[in-house]
Design a binder for these strands. Structure first.
Length: 1018
RNA sequence: GGGCCCGUAGCUUAGCCUGGUUGGAGCGCUCGGCUGAUAACCGAGAGGUCCGGAGUUCAAAUCUCCGCGGGCCCA
């Protein structure tokens, strides 16, 4: 069968239908049903967008590992999953429906909106299924877990109640980026999209120390937050000075004075460590409300920097995350005087109803009038804007539900210790650092499409309960519906009865979709309501694999949920993958249009080529540049070479009707090179296994590639071809076929996890079995590994290379045979034939020393001779060069004796030899071309040209021809028969003007020769 | 702004952990060769600031620090 770039994808399609028709995937799983389990947990993708090259990578790598483990005998259930909830889905749908903000969503109706979300999630399901099928990822997509199922949600609810029971699900505030116009918080991903450089006011403000005529000097770029100020923060370990400056007493950081008052005059009055200032009270700038807790005093905080401002930071817990946390630490009140539209509330009399940012200038004016403003400038910095409506975002304390992960830091760290990370540095690096500092998980979203937070509050007594199952909901519900859907708005309509007799209503929030997917390891089994045994069999998972951006995503949410509920690690091995970049190393994005469509690649070069590139190019965790050319290269370099090896075997073996069962030759009776290749194969199997166990799949792949291209194709086949050309039956030929058959069979199995299509094609072609994917992975046989043989062959290859280099230097074409090569060094007699063939010499001679082709020559030592012989030096030099060495010392010239130091002994190639060195070997090629040798070379020139003409005529290999050549008969001499045999010529005629079906004039050396060939019809 | 990863020939990369002759390969390029399995192969050549700088050391691609560039995550 012929295979090229065009036909390769077609071959894959055929294999795909073969697999489907014969249910090979199902059989491959079923077959290992009673074996040891290997548990894989699929990270659920969201199907509300088309798959891109990154998804192809994850699916490929997962597939490689799973196919490998399957062939190693493990039973692996491969259940697909879909992640279906979350803000990205809502935003997609908002865009589609043309809704601009939450108000419009609610006007449109939550019921209809969520319906649209549900539909949108599966809009691209077909595209995903097709990509998955086409790339050859074997996973059960018929029976996936889906995060929107009632059962799945119920399991999530159960876990939330577990957290609730432990007191780890609580209500608090979280400062989040908030768009006042859209009325929603934004996820960090959205915020990151909208940073712009802007100019904001930069003001220095005085805060009067209570009861003293001194002021703290603070700096801010958001004057409107001063309304909600509750404290001033200093760094505990920095020095602060009280100074007199322009008649006023000011307190600020020493380091900042040096910058701010550079060159100005001031008097130092006193100095303090930051922590000494702690607790000092000051008078607030504004007092629109009476706070319910103690405030307006100095606190200390490590986040205060000496990089900008005064070293004193104004604290408004309502509007900054660090502020909020400092507020928690010091139990400060939250003064929230801004409404959800970003406008000041009624209490802020002068600016009520005004958008906060617009009030900045008036507030500054007010402070100036009251003499509290020290300086006013503008300040350029990055500030986030809403990517949708472009209004400036506000950091805003929003009431939110939390999971107290910060209390579980130790457990997180402990459980992380049980996990093997690939690459290992993530474990204590990016991931380890992150969990060490774990913060409470802001779980709730004031949104619509998500798992509803199962908390109900009594309207009468304000009691809160957490519901942990449908059963519990049913028990307590006043109006349990007949048809249950746990999503909003249906679940919101369920009223529960409180112990106090009052009615309970659900809170409005849904939960973060990351919690959904983080619960996959038990929620997919509907644990603990069903499948208890199944769950424990599958916990913890042996293997998960996703891109590196999931470190703080799914990798974290899984560990977090598992630590929270089970106090254990949910997975044992995690393989992280690098991102896919474009040709220039930039991230792929739809915006930049640097996007390669996976489908185009599949259609053009096929999935194997894409898979092989992704796997073999670099370690899995390294970012990968991805573009058409590299895929094409993987195909032509590796896959087509492999195919051609197979096709070579297939061509000759079928010509000879080779049957492995019948014609099998014992290994002992095979040629040396056969044994060598078998040894190499077994070494390869051993190394591949070692690499795969360490998830170094790129190294395994490279080893295989090296073997196929280098050892199998470029060495073994090249050297064995002649054996197969012989038409008569021979044991050597059958030994070769036996070897090739075994090698190809094993290679098809070895590559099956990596490039499953070509592996299957080859396997099906050479066996009568059902599928390579039902086979066990090859095991190596230590007895067949002969390291000594492998090393010797390595030396032979080096010798051959060097000999060819010598020929090239001397300009003697490989086609022209030479008499002999002399090799000084360890004897490699058993490889004589290979060496003869490869460098086209008649004899290989292993010698003890180089005497045979090297001679010692004396070179005049001019610096000595010059002094001794003056103007006669040149003459003496000539004499020295022409006198045999042993006669030199003591020889008298012009009355003086030649001494040892008058000449230098050098080694020189003897006439007719060309010499080279490689490692511990010295090689000498006899380069004397006798007429006989030249005739033979000439015969090969003729053969080569007739062959090319046969090719151009598209002749079958068996077809016979007649040849006419414009040379004298004795130019070929004794080689005429050889030419006939090689070119399948019945007859050679020597004519000045050759005739035939095809006549061509050739140049051989300086000579023009015409050749005509004629088919012989049978 | 912080954490982590990466930077070696035009491209893809080995070597770095554990410092030690002349930094190795493949693709591409030039020249030459081989070829009835091959879109393949073989030989020679051109092509390197091992991202830059400093330090440690007898010795640095390799270890340390500081920069620069790219990526990811978090602000």
């Amino acid at each position: 069968m012929n295979m090229n770039i065009e036909s390769y994808p077609k071959m894959e399609e055929e294999i795909l239908s073969y697999w489907e028709k014969n249910k090979i995937f199902e059989k491959s799983v079923e077959k290992r049903k009673n074996n040891k389990k290997f548990v894989f947990l699929e990270g659920p993708p969201t199907a509300n967008g088309l798959p891109h090259p990154g998804h192809v990578l994850t699916r490929t790598v997962k597939d490689v590992v799973l196919r490998y483990k399957t062939m190693k005998g493990y039973y692996i259930e491969r259940r697909a999953g879909w992640d279906t909830h979350g803000l990205p889905v809502e935003i997609e749908v908002e865009k589609m429906l043309g809704l601009k903000n939450k108000q419009e969503v609610e006007k449109y109706g939550i019921e209809k909106f969520n319906e649209a979300c549900k539909e949108s999630v599966f809009r691209y399901e077909e595209a995903w299924k097709e990509m998955t099928r086409r790339v050859g990822f074997w996973i059960d997509m018929e029976n996936p877990y889906i995060t929107l199922d009632n059962k799945y949600i119920e399991s999530v609810w159960w876990s939330l109640k577990e957290a609730w029971k432990k007191g780890l699900l609580y209500r608090g505030y979280k400062v989040t980026p908030y768009c006042p116009r859209c009325g929603t918080t934004l996820s960090s991903h959205e915020v990151a999209q909208g940073y712009k450089e802007v100019e904001d006011p930069s003001i220095f403000v005085k805060f009067k120390v209570k009861g003293k005529d001194e002021y703290f000097l603070a700096w801010t770029t958001t004057p409107w937050t001063l309304i909600s100020n509750v404290a001033l923060a200093v760094h505990p370990d920095e020095w602060y000075l009280k100074i007199e400056y322009e008649g006023e007493k000011l307190i600020l950081a020493e380091e900042r004075i040096a910058v701010l008052l550079k060159g100005k005059e001031y008097v130092e009055i006193d100095r303090y460590r930051g922590k000494e200032l702690e607790g000092i009270e000051y008078e607030p700038l504004y007092k629109f409300v009476i706070p319910d807790k103690k405030c307006w005093y100095v606190i200390t905080a490590d986040f205060v920097t000496m990089d900008e401002g005064t070293g004193i930071v104004h604290i408004a817990p309502a509007f900054g995350e660090e502020d909020y946390e400092a507020g928690l630490k010091y139990d400060l009140p939250i003064i929230q005087l801004v409404d959800l539209e970003g406008k000041f509330k009624r209490e802020v009399a002068p600016w009520a109803g005004k958008f906060v940012k617009d009030a900045d200038s008036e507030i500054i004016e007010d402070l100036k009038r009251r003499g509290l403003l020290v300086s006013k400038q503008t300040y350029k910095h990055q500030y986030p804007f809403c990517w949708r409506c472009d209004s400036p975002l506000l950091y805003y304390a929003i009431e939110s539900w939390f999971i107290g992960m910060s209390k579980l830091k130790k457990e997180l760290v402990k459980n992380n210790e049980k996990i093997n990370w690939y690459p290992a540095y993530i474990k204590h690096g990016r991931f380890g650092e992150f969990i060490k500092e774990a913060r409470d998980w802001a779980l709730s979203r004031k949104r619509y499409w998500g798992t509803p937070l199962p908390i109900w509050i009594c309207k009468k007594c304000k009691k809160e309960i957490c519901i942990g199952s449908i059963e519990e909901l049913k028990e307590k519900a006043v109006n349990f519906p007949e048809k249950l859907d746990l999503h909003r708005p249906y679940v919101d309509r369920i009223i529960l009865k409180c112990d106090c007799g009052g009615e309970m209503e659900r809170v409005e929030e849904v939960i973060d979709a990351w919690y959904d997917s983080g619960a996959a390891f038990f929620a997919q089994w509907h644990y603990p309501f069903e499948n208890e045994e199944k769950f424990w069999q599958n916990f913890p998972a042996d293997f998960i694999c996703e891109a590196i951006d999931q470190t703080r995503g799914w990798f974290y949410s899984l560990l977090a949920v598992s630590t929270l509920i089970f106090d254990d690690a949910p997975y044992k091995n995690v393989l992280t993958l690098g991102l896919i970049l474009d040709e220039k190393g930039q991230k792929m994005s739809k915006k930049a249009r640097n996007y390669v469509e996976p489908n185009e690649i599949f259609a053009k070069y096929g999935a194997d080529a894409l898979r092989w590139y992704l796997i073999s190019s670099s370690p899995p965790w390294q970012p990968k540049r991805f573009y058409e050319k590299v895929v094409k290269e993987a195909l032509s370099k590796f896959l087509l070479t492999l195919w051609n090896v197979y096709s070579f075997y297939e061509t000759y073996a079928s010509l000879d009707k080779f049957d492995y069962e019948k014609n099998f030759v014992e290994i002992d009776k095979r040629e040396l090179i056969d044994k060598w290749l078998i040894s190499k194969l077994n070494s390869l199997i051993k190394e591949v296994e070692e690499k795969m166990e360490k998830y170094e799949i790129h190294k395994a792949a490279r080893l295989i590639e090296e073997f196929v291209i280098n050892d199998l194709s470029n060495w073994y086949i090249r050297n064995s071809r002649k054996r197969f050309w012989v038409e008569e039956e021979s044991i050597e030929k059958m030994a070769g076929y036996s070897t090739l058959y075994e090698i190809i069979l094993n290679i098809s199995k070895l590559i099956a996890p990596f490039v499953p299509f070509i592996a299957e094609r080859i396997y099906l072609d050479i066996t009568n079995n059902e599928s390579v994917h039902l086979c066990d992975y090859p095991k190596y046989n230590e007895e067949l590994i002969d390291k000594e043989l492998e090393e010797k062959m390595e030396k032979v290859r080096k010798i051959v290379e060097e000999a060819r280099a010598i020929r090239a230097k001397k300009g003697i074409k490989l086609r022209y045979p030479l008499k002999e090569i002399i090799i000084v060094g360890e004897k490699l007699e058993e490889f004589e034939d290979i060496i003869k063939d490869e460098i086209n010499v008649k004899n290989v001679i292993f010698a003890e020393n180089e005497e045979r082709f090297m001679e010692k020559v004396a070179k005049p030592n001019y610096s000595k001779l010059g002094k001794k012989f003056k103007e006669k030096t040149k003459e003496v030099a000539k004499i020295i060069e022409s006198t045999p060495i042993d006669e030199l010392i003591g020889k008298e010239i012009y009355g003086m004796e030649i001494e040892e130091e008058d000449f230098i002994i050098e080694l020189k190639e003897k006439e007719g030899y060309a010499v080279g060195k490689i490692d511990e070997y010295i090689l000498a090629l006899n380069i004397v071309q006798t007429p006989e040798l030249l005739r033979e070379g000439f015969a090969r020139e003729i053969v080569r040209r007739i062959q090319e003409m046969r090719k151009e005529l598209n002749l079958e290999m068996e077809e016979k021809i007649k040849v006419e050549i414009s040379i004298d008969k004795n130019r070929l001499g004794e080689w005429e028969d050889y030419v006939k045999r090689e070119t399948r010529s019945e007859e050679i005629a020597y004519k000045e003007n050759p005739e035939g079906d095809y006549i061509k004039e050739w140049k051989i050396g300086d000579e023009k020769i015409r050749i005509g060939i004629k088919r012989i019809m049978i």
